Amino acid sequence: MASFNSLSPIRYTACVKLSWIALSLALSLTLTGCKTSDGARHAEDYSRDTRPARPMAQNPSPAATSTIKDERPVILCFGDSITAGYNLDAGQSYPDYLQKALDEKGYKYHVVNQGISGDTTKDGLARAEDAVALHPAVILVELGGNDGLRGIPIASTRANFDGILAKLTATGAKVVLLGITLPPQYGKVYINQFNETYALMATKYNLTLFPFLYKDVYGVQGAIQRDGIHPTDLGSQLIVKNVLPLVEPNLKR
């Protein structure tokens, strides 16, 4: 896992190629506008959906609520619908399972979920000060997927990432960058530039990089929702298996 930090964009693309055989098949249905019998929407429609997970709005879990007073150091999960726990029950987002994993290991940290469904990097930049205000010890940044799905120019995405990461790293927090990639429909040039964005940002700000958040998630039966994009309860747990080893070296007992 540590070797991901030194991956070149070319090796990065090869690393995730097999996972995208399954992903491209799932996303091709939504991206081409096909309708399924249960009324599945386009992938872009899901990316634009700003609703949080239904039960989380009604009965917030500790990881999903930043207003609950807690004196423990903060681990901030800053992202889009994957972080927010789109269409999941309370307690089923990956930040919720990260909190549980840390508690079980005896770490005294408070995981805060600042995931907002539909957010692009532009939206993330607009609320970066909210993240800074929490004075987090560790920040997991999961953004960019909606930029790619909407075909936002790479230069804009990189500029937004630059602004976000400049603000977050200036706090002294340990920042972990969680990458994603795109299905083949977006073309090799755009995909390679999109993938390279994460590597460039990680290098510039000396960040820990996990290039493909869905590594060992996509392709696992029952890990992805029927929309072909968002993790299920199982998927959230598998994501934590990816991110926990990246977080632990930055923690104190």
Score class of each variant (00 low, 15 high):
76 L>E: 05
158 R>V: 14
25 L>A: 13
179 G>H: 02
4 F>E: 02
10 I>C: 06
144 G>T: 11
48 R>Y: 03
25 L>M: 11
219 G>V: 06
30 T>K: 14
69 K>Y: 07
116 I>V: 15
119 D>S: 07
96 D>Q: 05
159 A>M: 10
71 E>Y: 10
31 L>N: 13
162 D>G: 06
5 N>F: 06
17 K>Q: 14
219 G>Y: 00
23 L>H: 09
87 N>A: 14
179 G>Q: 07
31 L>I: 15
80 D>S: 10
210 F>M: 02
234 L>T: 11
34 C>T: 06
4 F>W: 00
124 G>C: 09
119 D>F: 14
149 L>F: 13
63 A>T: 10
89 D>W: 10
15 C>H: 15
234 L>A: 08
181 T>C: 03
137 A>V: 04
64 A>G: 06
230 H>Q: 00
81 S>W: 05
228 G>W: 08
12 Y>N: 10
214 Y>E: 00
227 D>C: 05
94 Y>W: 14
22 A>I: 14
87 N>P: 06
187 G>S: 10
249 P>D: 08
116 I>Q: 10
66 S>L: 15
46 Y>S: 08
211 P>Q: 09
113 N>V: 08
219 G>Q: 02
164 I>W: 04
154 I>M: 03
203 T>A: 15
22 A>H: 08
25 L>N: 03
25 L>D: 08
162 D>V: 12
85 G>W: 05
207 L>I: 03
144 G>E: 03
176 V>M: 01
190 Y>T: 02
